[in-house]
């Protein structure tokens, strides 16, 4: 999709916080000086096209009971990463699954984010995944500190 000046204006508004008023979209539409219906149609279009991956509440999982998460990195056969990645993605405890490049000091080519209620939980989930895809060289990286977590702001240097 080609992103027009109007799209950029709308996207910039939707990456902010939705007003907690009875008619939040009308409020945004008024600010953008467009019709509310047009705004609602645009948002639905962005969702259908996958430009908006999801619309709704972004929550801090650390505060909701899913307290432990681990980045589990896997040394997978480079010829089988697609097949293995798909299998890993089927686990409900896996929220993200990517293939990434390797380095001399970094042999792991598959990355999964695994969520559990405790570190022990994460180890057990990783073990189950490992057994399913028959990979036994993997490592769990837990975060010891969150230094930054924000949402990306797009098109900020454009009017």
């Amino acid at each position: 999709m080609e992103i027009t000046a109007l799209d950029k204006k709308i996207i910039k508004a939707l990456q902010e916080d939705l007003p907690l008023s009875e008619e939040p979209f009308r409020e945004i539409a008024n600010t953008l000086q467009i019709d509310e219906k047009e705004l609602l149609n645009k948002i639905q279009y962005y969702i259908d096209e996958g430009i908006i991956r999801r619309f709704g509440a972004v929550i801090r999982h650390r505060k909701t009971g899913f307290t432990a998460n681990a980045m589990v990195v896997w040394k997978a056969d480079p010829d089988k990463t697609k097949e293995i990645g798909k299998k890993m993605a089927e686990f409900p405890e896996v929220s993200h699954c990517y293939e990434r490049p390797v380095y001399p000091e970094w042999p792991y080519n598959l990355f999964t984010m695994v969520h559990g209620r405790s570190k022990q939980d994460c180890y057990e989930i990783a073990q189950r995944i490992g057994e399913t895809v028959d990979i036994h060289e993997y490592s769990l990286l837990f975060s010891s500190e969150e230094l930054k977590k924000t949402s990306m702001k797009y098109f900020m240097d454009e009017n």
């Binding site: 939705l18 999801r54 619309f55 929550i59 801090r60 977590k149």
Partner: peptide, 11 residues
């Protein structure tokens, strides 16, 4: 602090 933001998450 449970909800960080309400809005669009973009690809």
């Amino acid at each position: 602090g449970i909800i960080r933001r309400l809005g669009g998450v973009f690809d």
